[in-house]
Simulated assay, not measured.
Amino acid sequence: MTETPTRRGPWIVNASRQVYDNKWIQVSEHDVTNPGGKPGLYGVCHVKGLAVGVVPVDADGHVWLVGQHRFPGDYYSWELPEGGGDMAVAPIESARRELKEETGLTAAGWQELLRLDFSNAITDEIGIGFLAWDLTIGEPEPDDDESIEIRRLPFGEALDMAMDGGIRDAFSQLMLMKVDILGRRGMLPEPVARALGYMGKAIAARRGRR
């Protein structure tokens, strides 16, 4: 427990203590003076790993989803390939590993897609999403605690699932929507733009920048 007052922006942290710790997360409580000058209690969940996600796109314009039961919400979830990475490892290497483990896919083409914070009022978890293409199919290598179903479908159908609630996972929704936005703006890598039917927009965008 620490009791030396420190500042976090407009907050004053008067004391801090760790209340829970395991391999994946650490929960701390902070006695604070809030920006309005009143005393309060703030709980923070520190996530020890980096979240990585992948939008794998093949030459036919299809993507891969993985289905699994999510313990916290007790429901079955369709998502893009995602997982946790060691903070000491390059994010793209963790993304390569997760893609292979969950789908069996490897990719020759990679591009960072987005970076985001998850529930930043209560946790410091960070996510990095990648676009992957030029895919090679192999055998999945799931972890012992994973029971995963794999589904290949057209990108447009996956995007519809993100829009209508068929995909509830926020990370997956944002990655799919980002790909669509980049495609409409002519900003996707050429092989992906061609596969997903955005190639005309990419050509128009290049001409507009001349």
Rank of each mutant, 00 (worst) to 15 (best):
L135D: 11
S94M: 11
E146T: 03
R168C: 04
G109D: 02
D134P: 01
R185T: 00
R194V: 13
I92F: 12
L99M: 05
K100T: 07
A132L: 06
V179K: 03
F130V: 01
F155W: 01
G200V: 09
R97V: 00
L114R: 04
A193I: 02
L114V: 00
G138F: 01
I126E: 02
V179P: 07
D144A: 13
T123Y: 03
A132F: 04
D134T: 12
E139A: 15
M199V: 13
Q173R: 12
I203S: 08
E102L: 13
L182E: 10
E101H: 10
K100N: 11
I167H: 09
A170P: 00
S172M: 02
M199F: 14
A108T: 12
V192Q: 10
E149Y: 01
M161A: 03
A121D: 12
V89S: 09
G109M: 12
I181M: 14
P91K: 00
M199P: 01
E149G: 08
D180T: 03
W110K: 03
D164R: 00
G200C: 09
Q111A: 15
I92C: 06
T106C: 10
E190K: 12
D180W: 06
W110S: 08
F130R: 11
E112V: 14
R96N: 03
P191M: 01
D180G: 03
D124C: 13
G127E: 04
D164C: 00
L135T: 13
R194M: 11
I150N: 07
I167A: 03
L188P: 05
R168W: 03
K178V: 15
L182A: 06
E157F: 00
F155M: 05
K178N: 07
Q111R: 14
A90K: 09
T103R: 06
E139K: 03
L196I: 00
L188A: 08
G197K: 04
P140C: 06
Q111T: 09
S147I: 14
E157I: 06
E93F: 15
A108C: 08
A158R: 09
G129T: 01
A132W: 08
V89A: 09
R185G: 01
D145C: 10
N120A: 14
N120D: 11
M87T: 09
I137S: 11
Y198R: 05
A88S: 14
L114T: 00
I203G: 05
E101S: 09
L105F: 11
A95S: 02
I137P: 02
I122M: 10
